[in-house]
């Protein structure tokens, strides 16, 4: 079983993940239309690129925008959640060990203890996200079951990984569950809202180009996000 989930199934999951994201990117770009979007992506592109940079950079920095600054608590939770998720998924020693075994490559790694803290951080963040969804009327009204499902898919690998790592229950079983839930997330990314993994950047680049080219970027020192 372990061989199967770390072998063919892992290949499948990574394949779907990478190919899926490439397809989403290509489809997004192909679906841009200068006339309908009313942005000349191909004319005055220099301003568009500048606008795109401002748009992406401002928003990937914690507190880099008025939006982040006006929601400080949510901003901290959001950044802790996303950074912990990404860093622990990529740089955990155990993940790199498998990488090395299978493909002979390995990245730099973070200490196990840090990974453990990050897993806890992700789980706490998800709990806070859920509380927020229930407690705040402005979030409750737009929340659907799908939003909870997405949170579940994102947190599952951390819950199972945490249980396996600390060997609270049957290690063998929970490792397999951990791997399966990780693979489920990879597969879900291109097909669900989790596609914001790439679409966040594409969408920010698009709106950045819009403001950079058409909505004033050629007249001032750049939009203040």
């Amino acid at each position: 079983m372990y061989q199967f989930v770390t072998g063919p199934l892992a290949w499948l999951a990574f394949g779907v993940f990478f190919i899926g994201l490439i397809v989403r990117t290509v489809l997004y770009i192909k679906g841009l239309n200068w006339k309908m979007d009313r942005v000349t992506y191909g004319v005055n592109t220099k301003y568009g690129v500048k606008g795109a940079f401002r748009s992406v950079i401002s928003w990937i920095l914690p507190f880099g925008t008025h939006g982040w600054r006006s929601h400080p608590v949510f901003t901290v939770i959001t950044f802790v959640f996303h950074l912990s998720l990404l860093i622990s998924a990529i740089f955990l020693p155990a993940h790199n060990y498998i990488l090395k075994q299978k493909w002979g490559v390995s990245l730099i790694t973070i200490p196990e203890a840090v990974g453990d803290i990050m897993a806890i951080a992700v789980m706490i963040a998800v709990v806070l996200f859920i509380i927020r969804r229930i407690a705040l009327t402005e979030v409750r009204i737009i929340t659907t079951a799908y939003d909870y499902l997405i949170l579940l898919i994102a947190v599952a690998p951390f819950v199972t990984g945490f249980i396996a790592y600390h060997q609270f229950f049957d290690y063998e079983l929970w490792v397999i569950l951990h791997i399966l839930s990780g693979e489920l997330m990879l597969i879900a990314i291109p097909f669900t809202k989790l596609s914001h993994f790439v679409l966040f950047f594409l969408s920010r680049i698009q709106i950045g180009m819009d403001f950079g080219i058409k909505r004033g970027g050629m007249k001032n020192s750049g939009f203040v996000w």
């Binding site: 309908m36 979007d37 006006s70 949510f74 705040l136 979030v139």
Partner: peptide, 20 residues
């Protein structure tokens, strides 16, 4: 097309736009 489609689809339903 893609930009509108993406906006409708990936909206995280986070509510950050509320008080804007």
């Amino acid at each position: 097309l893609s930009r509108l489609k993406t906006w409708i689809e990936i909206c995280a339903r986070c509510g950050m736009c509320a008080d804007s």
